[in-house]
């Protein structure tokens, strides 16, 4: 396929300048062909796996694991849910039964066993949204993160402590003691606000009837800190 062009115009456009050296005499297209076609041949013969260096090195993953940078705290996630932050994409890696019984708002269900299926690749391998994996604890979500990270996917995170800790921290937070610092009260207030915003009143009423009265005096200050934190 490459030979006809070579013979065809090698004779043609250079006829005027016979005195100049050989490099200039060669038609630039032929020069380009001489360089690029063999390079293309090499690339065509190299096995695909070597060419596609998609995987992240194990050292790098180890470093990420030891720094715990894949974890997102329930408070951060809850804040994003309440803000309706479009960047957040919750991914439930539990089985579809468990997902149907209970799931966080806006979550999609990608069971851990399906995590490598091509069907979900567009969701997992993208650079627009923040994917947060969650499971009951954090083991399965962490496994999902590890598998996707090995594929070189970015922007995937793990909900710290999973749904168990979520229930404990967001749905059912322990009221802070009276001696706690202001931040504790702020966090508690924030969590309760999130919980009611997520439609968790039933849980709140049954379990948390007592907490509101004990600390009316601190309320105004709490609100101020809450607003600061929220913004």
């Amino acid at each position: 396929m490459s030979t006809p062009p070579v013979t065809h115009s090698g004779t043609n456009p250079v006829t005027g300048n016979q005195n100049i050296n050989v490099m200039q005499k060669i038609n630039p297209r032929i020069l380009l062909a001489i360089i690029l076609i063999p390079m293309g041949l090499i690339i065509a013969m190299v096995p695909e796996d070597t060419t596609g260096s998609r995987k992240v090195s194990t050292e790098q993953i180890l470093q990420e694991i030891s720094s715990g940078s894949q974890f997102v705290s329930p408070d951060e996630v809850a804040g994003m849910i309440v803000e309706n932050n479009p960047v957040l994409q919750l991914i439930d890696v539990r089985s579809s039964n468990e997902f149907e019984n209970f799931s966080l708002p806006g979550a999609v269900n990608i069971p851990l066993t399906d995590i490598l299926s091509a069907e979900w690749r567009d969701i997992l391998d993208q650079d627009v949204r923040i994917n947060v994996f969650y499971s009951n604890g954090s083991v399965h979500a962490n496994e999902a993160w590890l598998l996707t990270r090995q594929q070189g996917y970015r922007n995937n995170y793990v909900l710290q402590g999973g749904l168990n800790y979520w229930m404990e921290a967001i749905v059912n937070p322990d009221p802070p003691s009276n001696l706690s610092p202001d931040e504790e009260f702020a966090r508690y207030d924030f969590r309760r606000a999130v919980n009611s915003a997520l439609g968790g009143e039933t849980v709140e009423r049954t379990v948390e009837a007592p907490p509101p009265p004990p600390m009316p005096s601190i309320r105004p200050r709490e609100r101020a800190t809450v607003v600061q934190g929220g913004c």
């Binding site: 297209r29 065509a44 695909e48």
Partner: peptide, 17 residues
């Protein structure tokens, strides 16, 4: 991707011609 690249190079030279 390598084979495709090679074919594209050939196609490009065909178009130049």
């Amino acid at each position: 991707q390598g084979v495709f690249a090679f074919l594209l190079i050939l196609a490009a030279f065909g178009m130049f011609w």
